[in-house]
Amino acid sequence: MQVNDMLAVGLNHYLFLSAIIFSIGILTVLLRKNLIVILMGIELMLNAVNLSFIAFSHFSNNANGPVIVFFVMTLAAAEAGVGLALMVTIFKRFKVVDISIFEKLKN
C-alpha cells in the first residue's frame, strides 16, 4: 500500500521536482562566475516553470498551459540570442567571460 501510494504520481510530485530544479537554477545564477553558465542557469529556471505549467494543465484538464509554455520557449530563445550577443561583445572588449570584471567600475 505504501509503495502504491508513492507510485501514484500526482500534481505535488511534479511541483516538488519543479521547485528543486528552479532552486538549482537560482544557485547556478548566484554562485557561478562564468557568464555562459549563468545564462544556462536562467534557462534551467525557465524550464522548471514550464514543467509546472504542463503539470498544472495535465492535472486540471486545461489546454491553456501548453500554449503558455510555447510562448515561454520562444521568449527563452530570444533571451538566449540577446544574452549571447552581449556576451560576445563583452568578450571582444575585455577578453574574458567572467563576472569579476564588473567588480571594478572604473578602468
Partner: peptide
C-alpha cells in the same frame, strides 16, 4: 533530471 541539473551547477 536532478542529476543533470546538478551537473550544470
Amino acid at each position: 533530471l536532478i542529476l543533470f541539473s546538478l551537473g550544470v551547477l
